[in-house]
Structures are given as structure tokens and as C-alpha cells.
Amino acid sequence: MEPVFYIAGAVAVISTALMLTRLNVVHALLYLIVSFLGIAVDFFVLGAPFVAALEVIVYAGAIMVLFVFAGMMFNLGQQSVETERQWLTPGIWIGPVLLAGVLFAEVVYLLEGSAAYTGAVAVGPKEVGMVLFGPYVIGVELASMLLLAGVVGAYHLGFLKIVTPETQHDTDTDERRTDTGGDLVLAGADEPARTA
């Protein structure tokens, strides 16, 4: 099983790295999905089949789909690719890479002393379920409340539109002007009418 773990891990890391550097949004998203799938395999190898399944279904399946919808909706074409190319100068990477490198080194240092991975026994869904209904039941309740808040918020935010006709500024990426007359305009309703 071990080589599978490492291969899947490598796939995840590489595809994340690739994702970072893509210019096209949709390409990046697709790479991200691949990364998540790799992580899911890793979970399975580690003996956590439940979360492996969850990762695929919820994370890659729902959340990333949302992202894909959003990315599609913005209809960012060649123009945005150009912009991204402009923005991602090589020099820009230095600082954050340095910072992240330090963090990485710290984490490696932290984990160095610990014992090697065994991962023999799998912790199945049954155990997880029992724990959830037992000690962590409060967490479950809180999570459900959080999700409710998320739903309501998303609906609300997506529904109402902020009307500030006098402050529309010109941008250099998209030369669009939105003339917002009404206040109840569904998000994305006039999207197709906009030009890239």
C-alpha cells in the first residue's frame, strides 16, 4: 500500500503546484479537482475510507462544482488570460515562496522526531458515526447551524443588489459600465449580455 500513498501524494502536490501557475481559471480549477482526488486516495490508504468518500463527494463534487460554475459564469476569456500573464511576474513569487518555505521547514522540523507511519488498522464509518453521535454531537449541531447560516447568507447576498449608480468606475480589465436601474436583479441574469 505504501507506494500508492506516495504516488497519490505526489500527484496531489504536483497538480496543486500546477494549479497555482495556470493563467486560465478553468484550467486551474480542473487541476484542483485532480489534486483533491489524489488526496482522497491518500485518505483511503491511511485507513479512513469514510473521509475519502466524503472528500470526493463533498469537496470535489460539490464545492469545486460551485467554483466551476462561478468561473464559467464570469466568462473570462482571452482577455483575462492576458491580464493574468501580466500580473504573474516572476519577481512576485519570491517573497511568498520564501515565507512558505520557512513555514514548510518549520513543519518538517516539527514532524521529524515523530514515529513512522503504520496505518494498519482502518477506522471505518461505523466508528466515526459512533463518535459523532457521542462526544462530538455538539459539533454536529453547530455545523448544521453554520450550514444554515451559509445557505441563508448566500441566498440573501445573491439576491439583493447594491444600488450605487454614481460610483461606477472604469476598470482597465473590463470596460463595462453597468447601468443598474432596478434593484431586484438576479445575479448573473444579464451576464450573457456582457461582453468579455
Binding site: 502536490v13 496543486t16 503546484a17 497555482l20 511568498p96 515565507l99 512558505a100 518555505g101 513555514l103 513543519v107
Partner: peptide, 8 residues
């Protein structure tokens, strides 16, 4: 992974 995410 975390570092990569932070960087990006």
C-alpha cells in the same frame, strides 16, 4: 500543501 496554498 499548506505552503503551496499560502504562496498562491
Amino acid at each position: 500543501m499548506f505552503s503551496l496554498g499560502l504562496t498562491s
